[in-house]
């Protein structure tokens, strides 16, 4: 898969049998909708297919940041803030293909998760906890 920021090949990292696409240049990560479904269903959450749908329901964030294009369909993605008030801004594909986390966003996200006590059994929390798990080192 091609990184939506650097336009270079990304490599794949598989952890706990779930895959992420990772760009070693900008440190951004693509979380595919199908993989998210696997993660959420393994965690015992019903209807993992709704993950991207749920994120897309969040309001569009107002920002000057450049629009990113989905690495699967090439269409502009929606900027949304996950993780509550002081959350991080990520990009979600309107076609439900997946979520994109910029390099810096992953780091911010890990900070938020550390501040929270443990992982809750809900979509956003599960996704963020998994990302922290993968990139903890």
């Amino acid at each position: 898969m091609i990184c939506p920021v650097c336009n270079k090949d990304m490599f794949v990292i598989e952890y706990k049998r779930v895959e992420l696409d990772y760009c070693h240049i900008c440190k951004g990560a693509w979380f595919d909708a199908g993989e998210m479904e696997l993660l959420l269903e393994t965690a015992g959450l019903k209807d993992g297919t709704q993950a991207v749908h749920d994120v897309l329901k969040l309001p569009e964030a107002h920002t000057a940041e450049k629009k990113r294009r989905c690495p699967i369909c090439g269409k502009n993605m929606k900027k949304v803030i996950i993780g509550g008030e002081k959350g991080v801004m990520i990009d979600a594909c309107f076609q439900h293909h997946g979520l994109w986390f910029d390099g810096g966003e992953v780091a911010d996200l890990m900070k938020i998760v550390s501040e929270q006590a443990g992982c809750k059994k809900e979509t956003e929390s599960e996704i963020m906890c998994f990302l922290k798990d993968v990139f903890q080192g």
Binding site: F11, I13, E14, Y22, H24, V134, F135, G137
Partner: peptide, 23 residues
């Protein structure tokens, strides 16, 4: 060794890859 699997496309083969998990 940290438990992650890295799957590397042909364009990157031959270079050094840092595991994003453990470094």
């Amino acid at each position: 060794e940290c438990g992650a699997k890295l799957k590397v496309p042909p364009s990157m083969q031959g270079s050094m890859i840092k595991c994003p998990r453990c470094g």
